[in-house]
């Protein structure tokens, strides 16, 4: 029997402990142990971005990260995106701009878009398109997603 690894980490600001196999990915633990199923498993190879989370504010694919690597780090997922029970401005703009259809890419897309705006509150359309190039969407053609991110950027600038 393999021995499981004990991990203490922070997930969405809360101290969290779990036991994982050495080969478990962060996504496995989020989904199957911690019930944080907002991060989606699609490609398991870092090609689609549906499992996007932040690791110490850096955007990563949780399918490419081992769960054991979270020890002592800070992970943020889609479940931590609302603020005091209110939508984050990006969530609000995705709803208003019809920027989602089936919604399976939406959590990863929002996590990625937030990581962009946290770093660069005024991205150009080209910057948005290249930043989100690692997040696949098959429903929308990306048009309304880009517009929602632009609208969120405008609102963040106005309230700043």
């Amino acid at each position: 029997m393999s021995k499981k690894i004990h991990v203490t980490t922070s997930i969405n600001g809360e101290e969290t402990e779990y036991l994982c196999e050495p080969y478990d990915t962060m996504l496995d633990v989020l989904r199957n142990q911690l019930n944080l199923t907002g991060s989606k498993e699609v490609c398991s190879s870092g090609d689609c971005g549906a499992c996007s989370v932040t690791l110490n504010d850096r955007l990563v694919c949780s399918c490419l990260m081992l769960a054991a690597e979270a020890e002592g780090q800070e992970i943020r997922t889609i479940e931590g995106m609302t603020e005091n029970g209110n939508f984050h401005v990006l969530q609000q703009k995705f709803l208003e701009h019809a920027a989602l259809q089936c919604g399976i890419c939406t959590p990863g897309m929002l996590v990625a878009a937030k990581a962009l705006l946290d770093k660069n509150p005024s991205p150009t359309e080209t910057e948005i398109r290249f930043w989100l190039a690692g997040n696949l969407c098959r429903c929308t053609g990306y048009d309304k997603i880009v517009r929602a991110v632009q609208a969120a950027s405008e609102e963040i600038k106005e309230s700043a």
Binding site: R31, S39, G103, P107
Partner: peptide, 21 residues
């Protein structure tokens, strides 16, 4: 009218339950 979709809130918060969830 471009109303907000009824399933929108669940989808933008990661709460919507898909087949594997």
């Amino acid at each position: 009218k471009n109303t907000i979709r009824p399933d929108g809130a669940e989808k933008v918060t990661g709460r919507a339950e898909y087949a594997a969830d």
